[in-house]
Amino acid sequence: MTPTLLGRWQTRLLLFVIVGIPVTWWWTEVLAARDGGRSLVPAGIIATILLVGLALDWVYVQYQKRHWDHDWPFAYQLASMIFEFVLVLALIHFGLVPWLPSGILYFPQAVWDATRHFAAVLIPAFLLLLGPLQTFLVRWRFKGGELGRM
């Protein structure tokens, strides 16, 4: 993949809408059934990953430019997605996310829940990037990940 900054942002938002939101809604219902009450924590975490990711996209693009092909291999994509999740957990842990108190991660069960939630978002989102997205958006791969016509 050779995404541009605008392309990264648009693709990230698209995946957030078509994968992140529905999976998070479903996961919130699953937890509600178990714990007897809806929690905003999954939505808070996924939204934080989105914001952190939008910022990191700028860093990724600078890194791409350092390589002759300006390439972003699939392996980097997967690694960066996992990195963003771990980074957000760390930010929460150190109390650096104002809307998510660090207390939400005190129990191992909470970390495990967040990991399963993230995996449920990551796997379909990454698989879509491997090609299936192109079957809907034929111009996407030529626009560095941007949506719409040429």
Binding site: T2, P3, Q64, D69, D71, G144
Partner: peptide, 11 residues
């Protein structure tokens, strides 16, 4: 370079 096909270099 790969980005000539559909990346920043194409633009």
């Amino acid at each position: 370079p790969k980005a000539c096909w559909g990346g920043d270099l194409r633009q």
